[in-house]
């Protein structure tokens, strides 16, 4: 199969059909149209394709390497989307603390009772790992690539290229931050407002950059999914990005300051 496919890429001039030249200088002004190579052009598709059509299209139309590229691309976006969705659910659950420490504790206890956290945590970690592996395929991993990216950023200073660079850097940093966060949170179950407040008030230098980066990374990531797949117009996506980022940061700020207040109160 692959041999035949290669053949298709070879460009060949058609054979010389040797048509007669048109009638000479006959002077009547009406010359016959002949001698041009209208037929026998190499515009035809190669035979295997036609035969395939005749045989009811039994030839595989798509090769595996490109199939994987497509599916990995889909998976990259889906894993990112999944993580972003998780982040916003997480944020929603946490915001229960705004109604008071008891409501958050109740929610924590609820999750604990039905082992929801135990079920979710491995899935989340898997998703995170998958996302890391998938995005690394496109990220500038070699020094040469990083140097080229830096040069391009300095030279052209294009906003979306900058945001992508931010994704790369924040992504790398988040890998560290998220691991620490997951470790501390999951080794200290059940989730209780007091414990969280305690952590936040002690490790504020950790939480502030973490929150900023995670919100930034998720919102920019969603924006990039939207424009890459053409789900929103450019302007719409920008608007959505700014609005989402503002809401998420405000909420996170409220949550963190509440925790800090709770922690300080102890």
């Amino acid at each position: 199969m692959s041999g035949r496919r290669k053949e298709k890429r070879v460009m060949r001039a058609p054979e010389y059909l040797g048509q007669p030249r048109y009638a000479g200088d006959d002077g009547d002004g009406h010359r016959p149209v002949s001698g041009f190579m209208f037929q026998g052009q190499a515009t035809s598709l190669p035979l295997p394709r036609e035969q395939a059509a005749a045989l009811g299209r039994r030839l595989p139309l798509v090769t595996w390497p490109s199939l994987t590229a497509a599916m990995l691309e889909l998976a990259t976006s889906i894993s990112g989307l999944g993580l972003a969705v998780f982040l916003f659910i997480h944020m929603g659950l946490l915001s229960s603390v705004l109604l008071g420490a008891q409501s958050m504790d109740a929610l924590g206890a609820f999750l604990e009772r039905y082992y929801l956290l135990h079920a979710m945590a491995p899935l989340l970690i898997l998703l995170l790992l998958a996302h890391v592996l998938l995005v690394t395929r496109k990220a500038p991993t070699t020094f040469r690539q990083q140097w080229i990216l830096m040069r391009q950023l300095r030279r052209i200073g294009h906003l979306d290229t900058w945001t992508w660079a931010f994704q790369v850097v924040s992504g790398a940093a988040l890998l560290v931050f998220a691991s620490i966060h997951l470790w501390t949170a999951l080794t200290d179950l059940p989730i209780e407002a007091v414990k969280s407040a305690d952590r936040v008030s002690t490790y504020l230098w950790f939480d502030i950059p973490f929150v900023l980066m995670v919100v930034g990374h998720a919102c920019v990531g969603l924006y990039r999914i939207a424009v890459k797949w053409g789900l929103l117009s450019r302007r719409g996506a920008y608007g959505a990005l700014v609005a989402l980022m503002a809401v998420a940061l405000a909420l996170e700020f409220a949550i963190v300051s509440t925790f800090y207040g709770l922690g300080g109160g102890l």
Binding site: A13, P14, E15, Y16
Partner: peptide, 8 residues
């Protein structure tokens, strides 16, 4: 194009 189509 015409010359190439004639095989030259």
């Amino acid at each position: 194009i015409e010359a190439a189509a004639h095989g030259y």
